[in-house]
């Protein structure tokens, strides 16, 4: 079973990201589960969301404490939340940042300037789909084709196209390393 933890803030799309990842994994033929943990219900407040992916149906319903992968939508959270908490050995962390990030526990860190890409392509600083593209490139746990298909199902029309394009760009950048 692959367990993923997303850290974001209300309004950044962490919950939607976790759901898109689950639906994409299902599209790839896997079983899936995704759910949020809200702090307070307001824009900007720290939020966690979780995705589980497995070859068989998933029953357990507690929060993810030992993730294989962590996705951080906002590097401002690094000061507030221990995003590395419980990360499995050999686990990977994908962070939206344009700054340097110190690693702890020898975690493998992948930095993506998702806000830059988002402002360029989408015109708004919503980074969830971009990080999903990067996630597919870094981990290989889900196919980029499935991610793009679900992004287009989730956001219709031009917004879907733009998000798909942004995700693909982040995927290719992550593939190059």
């Amino acid at each position: 079973m692959i367990e993923v933890r997303f850290h974001g803030r209300g309004g950044q799309g962490a919950v939607t990201a976790a759901e898109i990842l689950a639906k994409a994994a299902f599209e790839d033929g896997k079983y899936c589960q995704a759910f949020p943990f809200f702090g307070v219900e307001r824009r900007g407040a720290p939020v966690m969301a979780f995705t589980r992916i497995d070859d068989k149906p998933i029953r357990r319903r507690y929060q993810v404490y030992k993730p294989d992968y962590v996705v951080v939508l906002d590097d401002g959270l690094l000061e507030v939340v221990d995003v590395f908490s419980g990360l499995k050995e050999g686990g990977k962390v994908i962070i939206n940042t344009s700054n340097g990030v110190e690693t702890t526990n020898g975690a493998e860190i992948h930095k993506v300037d998702a806000t830059g890409i988002a402002l360029d392509i989408l015109g708004v600083p919503i980074v969830n789909t971009i990080l999903l593209g990067a996630f597919a490139g870094v981990t290989g746990a889900v196919s980029i084709d499935a991610i793009i298909k679900i992004i287009k199902e989730t956001f219709s029309g031009e917004i879907g196209e733009k998000n798909a394009k942004a995700a693909k760009l982040a995927y290719e950048a992550a593939k190059k390393g």
Binding site: V15, E19, A22, K23, F26, Y31, C32, Q33, A34, F35, P36, F37, F38, P57, I58, R61
Partner: peptide
């Protein structure tokens, strides 16, 4: 609440 209401699965 949340554990089912906001959890997606097949």
């Amino acid at each position: 609440g949340f554990i089912l209401t906001h959890t997606v699965d097949p």
